[in-house]
Every structure is written in structure tokens, then in C-alpha cells.
Amino acid sequence: MIELDDVRRVYDDFSLTLCFSVADDEILALLGSSGSGKTTTLRIIAGFERLDSGRLLINGVDMADVSPQQREIGYVFQDYTLFPHLNVEQNVAYGLRVAAVAPLERRRRVAELLEMVDLAQFGKRAVHTLSGGEQQRVAVARALARKPRALLLDEPFSAIDSDLREDLRRHLMRVQRALRVPTIFVTHSRTEALSVGDRIIVLRAGAIDDQGTPQQLYQRPRTAYTARFLGRANIIRTAQLSAYGFGTAGGGDQTSADAELLMIRPEHVVLRPAEQTAETAEAAAVTFPARVVRSTYHGLYREYELETAIGPLYAVSNREFSDGSSLVAGFPPSHLTPVAPDALR
């Protein structure tokens, strides 16, 4: 288990404050934009950055005076940093050599790891001959060779073709489940965070903006920032909705009505042609007129930019409406989520 207890790191123009933990069988996704402190968080855990205050515990042991080489943490860098003068086997065996593991045992363990990452036939290959995905798997095998107490992955899929990413994500999850090692991976991709992480922490300007399971964060984000970061979100002032039935009986709960801002995802916005007002009202308690400004085709669905009485909105639908057409839009109250406003740090 990894625990960061009010950890702080301060630089001239940036400070990082963290408080979270990762369970043994958990994959935690650290999600954030560039400069939010994701990589620095990994580097603090790995021991490459010192703490200014707070405590970092791994399996209950305070890491304050433990050097990076003694922390027993597997770290996979964004570009994998496979040692160019060693072949695949030698790279995987590097940590075992450090630990002076006997050659026979070393060979057995390397073969086992390469088998696990589906690279059993690649042992003698020079690392520069491997594809990005293969290099990533070698780097993971190398990081796991010494049975680390935690696995840290910095943007592990960023250098991989999008076609391969899905396979590699599944692969990583399978390996992690098999080894039950607490894993933190850094990403700026919400798709990766949502599909791989058991839990997601959204970092913003050096602090945790929100955290929860992928479903919680996507459906019920705490802040407008997280709502937008995890996907297209309509953020609406609650006051603007009261004229359209919100807050009255059947038109939203009290918590939502008390909130300053509400969020609804585009896929939850109900769209009907103007003449189907009644059907819309059945599906959504809050309804109002809308006009299509622009539509974008995405294959399975169309995304619409709408001009409405409560301001611009996004909606998706598999129905086709032409630009300029008049519609009725509606919000099912159960999908309206109160969110905290953006407070720029």
C-alpha cells in the first residue's frame, strides 16, 4: 500500500500538495494537464524528488530516509528508457543482477517475466529493433523483475499507436491483477484513465481537484474542472433553469436546486423536433427551445452545438437534425449534477 499523507513539495513557481493512498490490488490513474504535477508525484514516490513536508509510507514504512535504490519501486518512464547496450533479456535481468540473484535463478525469472508479457521469443533481440509496444512490455517486465512494492508508470501508452493501446491496456491490467502490486499510472488521456484506472485522481495546478471511481468522476464530478476534463460537459447556472421547471415538483432535487452550477453530459440531453414538445416533457422535466448551430458527424452519433435560452449547449444524438433547425431540448433531473465552480488557483 502506498500512502501520501499531506505531502508537500514547493518550487519557486509551483507547489504540490497531495493526500491519497493506493491499495495493493488497485490501479490508480493520475490524470491532469501538463504542469499539474503528475510526473512530480511519481518522482516523489520513487525518491527522485524530496519532500518538503508530509509523510510517504510504502507498506507502512516511512520513506523519508530511504534512497531511490532501496525503495524497491518499479518505475516505467514515458519513453521506457531501455538500456541501449543491453538486449531484451539483459534489460529485464538488470535489477536481478543488482540484487546478485544467482545466474540460474535469474534466467528462470527472466524467462517467466518475458512469458508473462508475451515476449518469450524476444530475449536475444536488441532493444532498438522492438516496436513501441514491445519496448513498453520489456520496460514493465524489467520493472517487475525484483517484485517491487509498487509500480509507477509515467504516460505508459503515449508513445504507442492508438490501435495498439487498447491491447496494451488490457495487458497491463492483466499483469497487475496477477501480481497484485499497487500501481499508479500518469496520463493526460481521459480515455486511458477511465478505461484502466480502478480509481482516478484529477490533479490541477499541484493539488487534487477530485477523485473517485471512473463512473463517479464521469457521472458525478465534484467540480466543473473535473467535469470538463473527463469529457464534454454542459455547465449551467441553476438560476437560469428555474424559468423552465427546475426546482418545482419533479424538476430536480433540493441539493441540485441549492447548487450554483449544474453539469449534464451531452449524451443525457434529450433532443426532439419542436413539434414533439409533449414527448420531450415526458422524458425530461426541464425543457426549453433550442436551435442547431452546427453538427459534427462521429459515426455512431452526431454531436450538436445548440443555441438555447439558457446559453450554448452540447448534445449528442443518433437522430439527424439539420443546421438551423428548431428543437426542444430537455434535461432529465437525475442527470443534473451539482458541481463546484472553477476557482483558478
Binding site: Q69, E72, Y75, F77, T81, Y94, G95, R97
Partner: peptide, 19 residues
């Protein structure tokens, strides 16, 4: 990053220099 990777694999200074 090579140094840091080797550190995370437990390699002490002289081992990193040598290998």
C-alpha cells in the same frame, strides 16, 4: 532517466557507472 531507472532497480552508484 537511465540513472533514475537504474536507481529504481536498486543499482548503487558504482554499479551504475560500471554497467
Amino acid at each position: 532517466r537511465y540513472t533514475e531507472t537504474a536507481q529504481s532497480l536498486g543499482a548503487p552508484l558504482w554499479f551504475r557507472i560500471r554497467t
